[in-house]
Structures are given as structure tokens and as C-alpha cells.
Design a protein around this nucleic acid. Structure first.
Lengths: 361, 361
DNA sequence: GTGAAAGCGCTAACAT
DNA sequence: ATGTTAGCGCTTTCAC
């Protein structure tokens, strides 16, 4: 690690804008190796096209110069950037991060690179970010969510690359879509609680009056409330409170409100596991036994839900697999020439039953 | 949303590779507006350089055509890509996501865009990703961590853009650095527990034999162990177990081992809050009262740590601020011409005292 | 305030 | 298997 005692000085990074030296270009490599620039280009992109002997000469020149190909120039010339754009509401949510992870896993092999933008759940910001993404000429665009500004939707329609809307099955897909129905998540959760005999059932989600809104979460709440209504149950314990991103403290505050509104509440669904864990923690503090007194259910199958006491029953969607499927679809789409009909896929959902939900005896 | 009854068909996204139509270029705009391409370029990049009347004409043509400037071409020509590269171990860690968030907040205004790569705590992967990042000609490079392969270090030395190593103060910084000492985190945590009178103190971290290693976490363990030793305490309860990324289940499994090794253990430090929360949950299940029987301390000030019962004492580093400071430094560096001396900054750390740590009476 | 010419570093297409 | 030519869409530079 440290320099030898021979008086060798540790290497020092050249600093500032040393224009004039600049980085080596493909031309420098070609001159050093005594071949044409095209040969160098071939060695980089498809080595088999070149005689082993020539290849070695070139590779040596590349190594000696520390040449790193310029994909900016390459992209312009070949009209292939190798970028896939990904629009996310936020990075600080394990499930969205898992989507990015899954996508990357698929795309890495094929040498595509993710260009991530995030909106903080703000549609105007989404439009602004989309513009910047489009300027980078991605070869495919992945949008999380199906709700866009008028302008953003137009831009997505007009751009000549595949668009994939994920994590929400849009009623009017722009192009391709892989996801699940958040509305069904809500209904499924409600059905699960109703089947277990509960009649005083509540839910906690975000306020629809908040400046920041989570359309997916609102859909889950709507599905939940509808299912209660269809089953002839009251919906007065469906609470919309606070603004996204909803986390632990949201659940803690919300359950306090509901317990006050009706101390006899039997079960509650939270739009997110994080919020549900908040409910659980608040119940611990108030010595409200879960599930004996109150059953709690969440959404998203976040890791923490499986670790708390009691572990949390949750509606599960495999977000990592969602990212992987999306990546696979992109590879397929970009492999094909010409026309491909829209691919619409529901990856479904499941309930993970754990101990936080009981049953009426 | 739906089409009118006038027989208007809903717009349909043109699919496949409709080469021939293609996107509008600056030339299309210039022709439609009846000006030169340079004038269009000026309207895009610095509108004040152009007469209001001309500007309006151009803007109208831009809107009519749905023109989106091509930054690939722009980057090649101007030799400014507007990219800042960010290398992260993983996206699925709230603190690293917070770094990205903080960075973005700063860079957004100045129209820089993050290019994120992640390594899954794997140095060979880091080198591969670094190559791909460099090919995109970022104007600055942010590396998380200070431990690189020989090749990666060389590439970072040779590239002619600022390099900032963050989240770990390197002993041999390549260029700039903003971070904190993970070793000091460990020592600080140990001191905190020792000051409270504990003598049978343990720690849980990752195995150094694992294929995947977290050098930052290992530093924290080293600092912790050293401090115990300096204070004349035994280190037989310092447990290195499992491979990163360490999460809840790691803590749960590790504390089980330590409780077996010495049921009299009084306090434990976990390299990460997630692991510490796992310890807490396992203690709940085993009815080991925290902090009365066992004190627990973590690192990272993850949100969940403040929500569990009892809330977790932790060593806090403001990662979001770290990202912001890094963004500010980059803006400063890129604003300057020529030479800038290395900027080395310790953002420090603090202890957040909560109820999970008690005191010997 | 606006335009014309040249060229960024690479690759597609064709030629040998 | 390798080389030559032309040009990707923009911005720099300099002229008017």
C-alpha cells in the first residue's frame, strides 16, 4: 500500500482542468498499435472480428494508454445509448429499490445501464425529470405508476422507444405494462379480515388533501373501503391522514386516532407495512394486545414486518421479480425489430399470513 | 380522458422502430422557425442571447414539433455531459439511498444528473462498474468507501475529473473526501457503554471470512474491540458472524449465540441499527428485558430504531447531509477553473441516547 | 443578435 | 480481416 523506501513518491492525481493533455482517444490507440481506428473499434465491441495477433497489439495499446472508450461519442454514432430510464417516486423505499435491483440484474448482462430519476411523489417533478431523461436518448423507459401529467403522457406517447408502466396496472396503458392492481390489494385485504369474522374494521392511509399524494396507496384504500361497503360493513373507521411517504410514525399516530374514535375496533389495515409496524409499536406501548384485542395487516411485505412481535400479516407483491420481469421484457423488446404488440402482465399478489391477525371466536 | 363521440380515435403510440420518421432534430426546428441552428441552440441553452421575437418563433417550433434536445450530441460537442457518477454498495440501504437523495437535491438546480452504479459490496464488481461509468464521461465521481481494487484506484487517479470518496475517511485519499471514521464509531460506542459501568460487553458484526465483506462495518468492529482492549476488558463477546448486507435476522441470530456464550452479558453493540433491532426483537421473544438485563446499541440512526420498544440508542451520522455536502463540493469544484487542493472533511458523529441502554447501578 | 464552418469521438456502410 | 469515407446532432468559434 505505502510507497517503497527507494524514494518513490506516491502517485499524485493530476488536478484541475488539464486541457491539452486530455484523455486518449481511439485515434491515439490506433496510432500506437499501427492499425486503423475501425480495427480498434472492432476490438472493443466485437473482438472476434479481428485477427488474434492484431487484437493483442490493440489490447496492449489500450492498456498502455489507459484508454477508456467514449460512449458519448459511440452512442451518437451508433444511435444506441445503452441507457434504460427508470422513473421512481423515491429511492428511500425498499420496494422501489428492489425494483431497481431486479431491473439491473437483468440488464447488466446485456450491457444496458439504468438511468434513475425520482419524483418524490410529485407529478410536476415527474414531468421535469422525464424531459431530462428523454434528452439522454434512453432505449426504453420504465415508469413507476400510471398517473402522469398531460404533458408527460404526451411525451411518452410520442417518443419512439418502448414505455413500460410498472407497479400499477393502468386503465389506459401508454404501451406495455407489468404490475398489479392496488385496488385489488385493498379488496383482498378487506376480504381476508371479513372472512375472519371481524365487523369493526378500520384502515389507515394518506390524506387526499395533502400536497404530496400517493395514487397507488389511495387505490388500495379505495379497494378496501369498497369491499367493506359491498359486505355491508361500516366505513367510518377508514382513516385518511397525513401525507406520503407514510412511515412508522404515520401508523402510530393513526391508530391512536382510531382507538379513540372506537375503542372496540377489531382489525385494521395499513396501506404500507411501515405504517402497520407503527400501529404494532403503538399497540405495544398502549398495552393493546395484538392480535387478541386488535388484528393488524399491512402491505408490501417489508423485511421488518417479519421481524416484529407478533410478525405482521401482509399483502405481498414481489417487487424484485417485478423488476426482473421488466428487465426481461425490455431485452426482448430491444432484441426484436419492428412491431411488438403491447405486453400487459399482472404479476398478482398473495397474502402472507403471520400472527398479527387473529379471528373472532 | 376518453375520446369524444365525434369519431376521434384515441391516440396510439407508434410502435417498433419507425426509422425514417425519427425524432425532430435541431435542424427541423431551425427550418420550421426560419432561423439558423445556432439560434435554436441559443434559445435552448441561454435564451437571453436571442431577441424576444426570434425566441418566441423558435419556442413555438419547439413546441409544435415536440422537440427534445439531444444531450448525447450536445455532450460530445460541448465536452460537458452533466453527469455525476455515484458508486454505492447497494441501493437497498436507507442510509446510502439518503446519500443519493442529498446529492440529487444539490445537483438538480445546476442541471447535473446522477449516474448511479452499485456493487453489492463486491470490489471486482466495483471495478467493472467504474469502467462503465467512466465511459459515460462524468464530470465528477463519487465513490462510497475508500477500499478499491488496484486497477480501480489507478483508473480513479488517472481520470481527469474530481473524485470524492465519501462515508469513510480514507488513509490515502485519491483526491477529495467527505466522511467520518468508522473506527471512531466503534470506539465511541464502546466508550459509551464502558462509561455506564458495563464490563461484560459484546458486539455483533459480519464475518471476515465471508465472500462479501463490508469494510466499513469491519472498521467499526475493530474500533469497538480496540477500545474494549484499551480499557482492559475482555473481547470474547465480540462476535463476527454472517455476511453482509447485515439485517434484522443477523442480530437475532447473533444475540442468541452471545446469550448462550455468556448469559451474563450486559451490553451489546451491533454494527448496524438493523442488526440491533433484530437483537431487540429476539430479546422480546426470549423475555430478556432491555435495558434492565441487556443494553443494546446500534449504528446508523435508521428510522425503525426510533420506533421500536424500547427505542434504540445509536451512533448517528447524517448521511443526507453527507450527500448534500458532497453535492455542494462538486458544484464548487466544477465552478472553479484549474487547480483545487484536495478537500478532506470529517462530518463527525454523535450518539443519540434512547432507552435501550441502561447503566450499572 | 445572428449565421457559417468546423469538428467533438466514434461507428455504419461500403470497399478492398 | 482491415481500411476508407461519411456523418451522427449538437456546440465552439469566429465572422458579420
Amino acid at each position: 500500500m505505502s510507497s517503497t523506501s527507494e524514494g518513490t513518491v506516491p502517485p499524485v492525481k493530476p488536478r484541475g482542468k488539464t486541457r491539452g493533455t486530455g484523455r486518449p482517444t481511439i485515434r491515439d490507440v490506433s496510432q500506437l498499435a499501427g492499425v486503423s481506428r475501425m480495427t480498434v473499434s472492432r476490438v472493443i465491441s466485437d473482438p472476434d472480428l479481428v485477427l488474434p495477433a492484431t487484437r493483442e497489439k490493440v489490447l496492449k495499446a489500450v492498456a498502455d494508454l489507459g484508454y477508456v472508450p467514449d460512449r458519448v461519442a459511440g452512442s451518437l454514432s451508433s444511435r444506441r445509448t445503452g441507457f434504460v430510464a427508470l422513473m421512481l417516486p423515491t429511492l428511500t423505499n425498499a420496494n422501489f429499490a428492489a425494483v431497481a435491483q431486479g431491473l439491473t440484474e437483468q440488464l447488466r448482462e446485456a450491457d444496458y445501464q439504468l438511468l434513475i430519476a425520482y419524483t418524490e411523489y410529485n407529478q410536476a417533478e415527474e414531468e421535469r425529470q422525464l424531459n431530462k431523461l428523454l434528452a439522454r436518448r434512453p432505449e426504453a423507459i420504465v415508469m413507476t405508476g400510471a398517473s402522469h401529467t398531460r404533458n408527460a403522457a404526451r411525451m411518452l406517447m410520442q417518443c419512439d422507444v418502448p414505455v413500460i408502466e410498472i407497479a400499477d396496472l393502468p386503465s389506459q396503458p401508454i404501451d406495455h405494462s407489468i404490475g398489479f392492481s392496488n385496488y385489488e390489494v385493498g379488496r383482498t385485504a378487506a376480504r381476508h379480515l371479513i372472512e375472519r369474522g371481524f365487523t369493526r374494521i378500520g384502515a389507515v392511509g394518506g390524506s387526499q388533501e395533502a400536497a404530496v399524494r400517493d395514487h397507488r396507496g389511495e387505490e388500495r384504500m379505495r379497494g378496501f373501503e369498497d369491499e367493506l361497503r359491498f359486505s355491508g360493513l361500516a366505513t367510518d373507521l377508514v382513516l385518511r391522514h397525513g401525507s406520503p411517504p407514510l412511515s412508522y410514525d404515520h401508523g402510530a399516530a393513526a391508530i391512536a386516532i382510531l382507538l379513540k374514535r372506537d375503542p372496540g375496533i377489531q382489525a385494521v389495515f395499513a396501506v404500507s407495512d411501515l405504517s402497520a409496524v407503527g400501529v404494532l409499536m403503538e399497540c405495544q406501548r398502549r398495552h393493546v394486545p395484538v392480535p387478541d384485542k386488535l388484528s393488524v395487516m399491512g402491505f408490501g411485505n417489508f423485511e421488518i414486518g417479519g421481524e416484529v412481535n407478533p410478525p405482521l400479516t401482509t399483502v405481498n407483491v414481489n417487487f424484485r421479480a417485478l423488476g426482473q420481469r421488466t428487465g426481461a421484457l425490455i431485452l426482448e423488446l430491444l432484441g426484436r425489430d419492428g412491431d411488438t404488440p403491447p405486453h400487459i402482465e399482472d404479476i398478482g399478489l398473495s397474502i402472507i399470513e403471520r400472527a398479527s391477525v387473529g379471528r373472532v371466536k
